[in-house]
Design a protein around this nucleic acid. Sequence first.
DNA 1: ACCTGAACACCGTTCAAGT
DNA 2: ACCTGAACACCGTTCAAGT
Lengths: 228, 228
Amino acid sequence: MFQICQDRAMEKKDGKRRDKALSRDQVISAAIAILNESGESGLTFRTLAQRLATGPGAIYNHVQNKQDLLAAAADVMIQSALSVNRDELAPGAAIRAVALDVFDIIDAHPWVGMELSRAPWQPAMLLIFDRIGANLQALGVPDMAQFHAASTVTNFILGAAAQQAAAIRLHADGAQRATLLSAAARAAIHQDKKSSPFLQRMAGNLTEHDDREQFSAGVDLILRGISG
Amino acid sequence: MFQICQDRAMEKKDGKRRDKALSRDQVISAAIAILNESGESGLTFRTLAQRLATGPGAIYNHVQNKQDLLAAAADVMIQSALSVNRDELAPGAAIRAVALDVFDIIDAHPWVGMELSRAPWQPAMLLIFDRIGANLQALGVPDMAQFHAASTVTNFILGAAAQQAAAIRLHADGAQRATLLSAAARAAIHQDKKSSPFLQRMAGNLTEHDDREQFSAGVDLILRGISG
DNA sequence: ACCTGAACACCGTTCAAGT
DNA sequence: ACCTGAACACCGTTCAAGT
């Protein structure tokens, strides 16, 4: 559906003017390549221009600004993640599948999660909302309740996306996840001694749970609330 | 619990050196004042230094970096929002109250929502997690399930926080919320014609629902899943 | 019409020099 | 020990000049 094309970069060696075929799709796909390789901090109009063998200004002929660029990039990723046909699944299983597909793409490319939570009303987010909601009718949710049900699941996914993106970023920083998390928990607990009993009781789970399993359990829990 | 102090700014008029009493709390409270007045984009080490009548470098004597500053500011806001005693409430109502307190503070100060979703493992977030979890035992949730239940509610709150913060920011930009949202929805729908039937059916709700009611309904729905 | 890249108006952060 | 503010190494974005 979306071709990553890098050949443009090769033409940079000679100082000549490139063939003028720069398109919006090429800009977005180059941005995605940089984001996947170097993360959010690696994407700059200068690095992007270099990969496209042009000047920073040229990018603005195909993209409104950096927000627009990031939203378009995230949309491509989410569309690709949700392109698998799930029609054969039962409605509950289909919702679970959509949620896990989103989780997995964010797990693999944390910048997508950061971008979704930075601007929740972008096309990528509406696509997720639609795919969740499309299964509610078959699940037997009344018309009036479908909007609240879909938005609840979507908000949960959004929150988990931010959480997961941050977790991966911490991990990528080379720091031990357990160390950082328990340090944070300890700091919070320490701050007002014994006023955080639940946090203290859950310290072990916080540092050792499986993120994907936690996410999946959350989806199931919400589905139970929707169906019940 | 936390005093906003602005008197320091008054000393700036004369060119003399200020009395040296700059403290971490003063830096954070000045940052909060700027954030509440001008939003995220208004907070700069230069604007903050100006309000504190000092140089940008001085701030680093009391704060590690901007992330640290924002996390500390958000923590103050969340602590203040959750400082009301809810012990007399039934566990379900207490969880609802915590969630709505967080919603309201983000509604009033959208930068808090942005900050929470930027770094989900900061003290403010752990405090919310603790306050939610503290009511699960009384709600009759089994020990093993309490972690998943608390993290599900927390993730939902986090997602809604990002959503709400973005909504307020759009509104503050002077643009009509309905216009922008329906434009986004229309764009998403248009993109692949009739492949978004649910989004189309919900277009009206998307632009006209009440955010707080939607949030409250989401909390109720998850609570039903937890209890059921 | 589109590219080019220097220039503009900023950032967060550092650090020698002060007190 | 803490402040001061110029300087550093960047940003996103604009725009005259090219083709």
